[in-house]
Structures are given as C-alpha cells and as structure tokens.
Design a binder for these strands. Structure first.
Lengths: 110, 110
DNA sequence: TATATTAATCGTAATATTGCAATATATGCA
DNA sequence: TGCATATATTGCAATATTACGATTAATATA
C-alpha cells in the first residue's frame, strides 16, 4: 500500500532504512558530495551543478536538513548549506554497524 | 513525477543511490540481518521472523536478489537464500567511498 | 520605497513503492 | 497420479516520491 510497517521493526532497522532512503536518490548523493567537496554552498550553486530545477533541489535539501545531515545558515540573501559533521559521524556509525556485519558461520550454505 | 533523472548523474552516484534504496526499507534491512545471523535461510522462516505476508517477503527477496546482494538455491521444496559475500563486499566498497568522505576544507563555514 | 535576487512553499501531474489476496508454479511424497 | 508444501507471480489499492511551474517570503540595494 505504499506505506511501510515501521512498527514491526527495531529502532536500529528503521534508522538504517531512514538514512539509506535519504541516500537512495542520486541528486541527494550528488548534493552531499558537492557539499563535502567545497565545504560550503548556496542552493543556487547546486541548481547549476546538479541540473535540476530550483524547487526540486530545495526539496532535496529540506529532506537532508530534516534528517540532520546538513545544516544551513542565512548568508545575506542566500543560504549557506554545509555538512553537519557530528550528525554525519553518528549516521556513519549506524550504517557501518549494518554494512560491516560478518557471517557468523563461515561455511556458506549455497 | 516520481521518475528519477538518472542520466544526469555519474555512475558512482547512481550506484550509491541504487544500493541505498535497497536498504531504504526496514524489511530488507531485517532480512539481510537475519541472513547474516543464521547464514542460511528459507523464505518461510523470514515470513515468521519479519511478520509480513509471504508475497511481500518474496518481493523484497527478489529485489535483493536482482541487486546481487543475496543468492538463492533450490533445496528440495524450499529455497535457500543467503548473502552473496563477494557482491556484498563490492557494495560495501562503493558505500564506504561515499560515507567516508572527509571535509577537504576543515574550517566549516557555518 | 521600489526593484532585484535568492530560496522556500504550494499545487499538481506522473511515476514508484508497499502490501496483500488470489493464483500459479514447482517439488516431494504417498 | 494426486496431494501437500513452499515459493513466485499477478493484479490491485493505498500511499510515497519526484519534478517543476507558479507563487511567496525575505533580504539587499538602488
């Protein structure tokens, strides 16, 4: 039904899914990479760099901001977006715990 | 429009997004964690463990299989699904390259 | 104040995802 | 063959996501 039954999963599983979903669109991946690269950015820049319309970029930025992965501060008439280092590190910890799982029983079945 | 403009992004960006999208649902996170834990599984098990209907689990398994993250082999009347170690490692390399980005300019702007 | 610039919000269309009932398929066994 | 078991597929309803034009809000500057 397009609705995810989050209540039947653990907090950790939902957290992984929430972060992963944010990275599940190449525009957001590209935005984050650009923010890492120049370590400061205004939305206008991104519209040119990414190649999507301004409202679309703004929407993607909002999602990343709501998740806490980026933060924005007003710089005159534009807004300076950048990576939120602490939250990025926290997200990495969650994701790495998931990605770095090891097979407990080394003899693979198939 | 619900359609992603993949053609304006790099292969790497699309790869990250594709893998991340797979992890963007807690059911698939839970499935993978369970496969890691017991290192062998049949779909029926998962239906009980996860708590979603059999067709829904089957659908999630199909997505993970199409991505190559898991593989399944026929075991009599059931199917043995398990992690695809090589492809999992390859996925991890792609994701880590993205997650482990560092701020080139250490003086954060905001 | 009027105008330009920049980003956010609104509204909407197109498409994707999630979930499941019903059904189909495939294998094992009596 | 006929039945039981296990998984896949189909079809559909509900919801979510993506994208963008139009508009709004907010600030800077003439």
């Amino acid at each position: 039904m397009g609705i995810t039954k989050t209540e039947i999963f653990t907090d950790q599983q939902n957290q992984v899914a929430t972060f992963a979903k944010a990275f599940g669109h190449p525009a957001r991946v590209a935005i984050l990479q650009h923010l890492f690269k120049i370590n400061a950015c205004i939305c206008g820049d991104l519209v040119e760099v990414i190649g999507l319309a301004q409202p679309t970029i703004s929407q993607h930025l909002k999602e990343l901001k709501n998740l806490g992965l980026i933060k924005g501060s007003i710089e005159g008439t534009s807004i300076c977006y950048c990576i939120h280092p602490e939250n990025w590190a926290a997200m990495k910890a969650v994701m790495n715990q998931f990605l770095n799982q090891d097979l407990e029983n080394k003899t693979n079945c198939c």
